[in-house]
Simulated scan of single mutants.
Amino acid sequence: MITVLIIEDEAANAARLQKMLLQSEEEIVVTAVLQTVRESIAWLEKEKSPDIIFMDIRLTDGLSFEIFNQVNIKSYVIFTTAYDEYALQAFEVNGIDYLLKPIEQKKLDLSIKRIKSFITPEPDNSVVEILKKMRLHKEIYRSRFLINHKDLFITIPCTNIAYFSSENKIVSLTTHSNQRYVIKQTLDKN
């Protein structure tokens, strides 16, 4: 689910944008529709940041760029405006897209899809491939040790071994039940 904030001072444009967002392929929830710079600053200071902000540039009480001077915006911002003269300034404040009114559904969907790829990135297949190769090439380690003990040979499963120790070049293993056995081999790759 993608959360959206709309900052638009014309009610008809805000309603049209909401309707278009509902027609989008993505599951979108509009958290609020705000109309002024002042109202937007107050809302952004106290509410949880939405995933996307659709922001008109010219609002009744000034340009929406003033919001960036007052609030640290962490959301992705798509500017929606009838004026192409603010495009450079929009990208200077980290706008991710710039849609000219009247907004086309196809362009809106493309913008949302682009942002969704940032919000939920594709899994890193290189890591997945490495894990698959590791499973295919896993080394088989021994599952038990054969030990000569009091003229008998006994096997100790690895699951019963608590630890190995070495003292004066003599290697021994100790089981979970504290039984200690000297093994006459190294632990290299056996």
Score class of each variant (00 low, 15 high):
1 M>G: 04
1 M>I: 03
1 M>V: 04
2 I>T: 11
3 T>C: 01
3 T>G: 00
4 V>G: 00
5 L>I: 01
5 L>A: 02
5 L>M: 06
6 I>P: 03
8 E>F: 02
9 D>A: 09
13 N>V: 09
14 A>G: 11
16 R>T: 15
20 M>Q: 12
23 Q>P: 01
23 Q>T: 07
24 S>W: 04
26 E>V: 02
27 E>K: 05
28 I>T: 03
28 I>Q: 02
29 V>R: 05
30 V>G: 03
32 A>W: 00
34 L>P: 00
37 V>L: 02
40 S>Q: 00
41 I>V: 14
43 W>C: 00
44 L>G: 03
44 L>Y: 02
47 E>R: 02
47 E>C: 02
47 E>V: 01
47 E>Y: 00
48 K>Y: 09
50 P>R: 00
50 P>M: 01
53 I>R: 03
55 M>F: 03
59 L>G: 07
59 L>Y: 07
60 T>M: 13
61 D>H: 07
61 D>W: 09
61 D>A: 04
62 G>N: 07
67 I>M: 01
73 I>D: 05
74 K>Y: 11
74 K>L: 15
74 K>W: 11
74 K>G: 15
75 S>Q: 06
76 Y>H: 14
77 V>D: 00
80 T>K: 06
81 T>P: 08
85 E>H: 10
85 E>N: 12
88 L>T: 13
90 A>C: 15
91 F>N: 10
92 E>H: 11
94 N>K: 06
95 G>K: 02
97 D>T: 05
99 L>M: 10
99 L>P: 08
100 L>I: 11
103 I>F: 11
104 E>P: 06
105 Q>I: 05
108 L>R: 02
110 L>S: 14
111 S>G: 04
113 K>T: 11
114 R>P: 05
114 R>E: 07
116 K>N: 03
118 F>Y: 12
120 T>C: 05
120 T>W: 05
122 E>M: 06
123 P>K: 09
127 V>G: 01
127 V>C: 03
128 V>K: 13
132 K>G: 03
133 K>I: 10
134 M>H: 13
138 K>P: 08
138 K>F: 10
139 E>H: 12
141 Y>Q: 14
144 R>H: 14
146 L>F: 13
146 L>V: 13
148 N>I: 10
153 F>H: 07
156 I>D: 03
160 N>V: 09
162 A>T: 00
164 F>C: 07
165 S>D: 15
166 S>P: 12
167 E>C: 14
169 K>T: 12
172 S>K: 14
172 S>T: 12
174 T>E: 15
176 H>C: 09
178 N>T: 08
179 Q>I: 04
180 R>H: 09
181 Y>M: 06
181 Y>Q: 04
182 V>P: 01
182 V>M: 08
184 K>G: 11
188 D>C: 04
189 K>C: 11
190 N>T: 08
